[in-house]
């Protein structure tokens, strides 16, 4: 599920949800490389190149991280906080997928550095449209950070 290089990293534990989220992205661009992390830890390991993904250390960041708010073990906000704190991957564009727009949760997401927050509609047609809109923008219009942009501070210079 996790190629060494991915355009999109989807962080989602529910396989049904994964399948339904991949579909609109695939329909948008069948060539798109999508990685799926099943929980927050795996996502961090992948992005930060540690644990099982030590070999990815220094690999390019995905152009879009679709991070679900509710995750087992380490939840979405914690993943984002760790990500933004890491010199290696702080610049990764992260879109938070939230079940409903709870003001308190939204505030928290933005506070720890979400690039965008999107509510997942229950109705599939609406959901499909939403995911495609997100993909179209972040993979199409949005200019991704340069390869070295995520590398900040002395650690980055030293690499």
């Amino acid at each position: 599920m996790l190629p060494d290089e991915a355009d999109v990293l989807l962080v989602q534990d529910n396989p049904l949800e994964v399948e339904l989220t991949l579909r609109p992205l695939r329909d948008l661009d069948p060539a798109c490389r999508i990685g799926v992390a099943r929980d927050g830890e795996e996502a961090l390991d992948y992005l930060l190149g540690r644990g099982a993904f030590r070999h990815r250390l220094g690999a390019p960041l995905p152009r879009l991280v679709l991070l679900d708010l509710k995750l087992p073990r380490v939840d979405g906000v914690e993943v984002l906080r760790a990500l933004r704190a890491s010199p290696r991957a702080s610049a990764a564009p992260v879109v938070m997928l939230v079940p409903v727009s709870e003001p308190r949760e939204l505030a928290q997401c933005y506070q720890v550095g979400a690039n965008s927050c999107v509510q997942k509609p229950v109705d599939f047609d609406a959901f499909y449209e939403t995911i495609q809109t997100v993909g179209r923008y972040w993979l199409g219009q949005n200019l991704a950070p340069p390869a070295a942009a995520g590398q900040r501070g002395s650690g980055a210079v030293g690499r």
């Binding site: 049904l16 949800e17 339904l20 409903v100 109705d123 599939f124």
Partner: peptide, 9 residues
């Protein structure tokens, strides 16, 4: 929300 979306999806 998610299960209902899955059914419809």
């Amino acid at each position: 929300r998610a299960p209902v979306r899955h059914i419809g999806g």
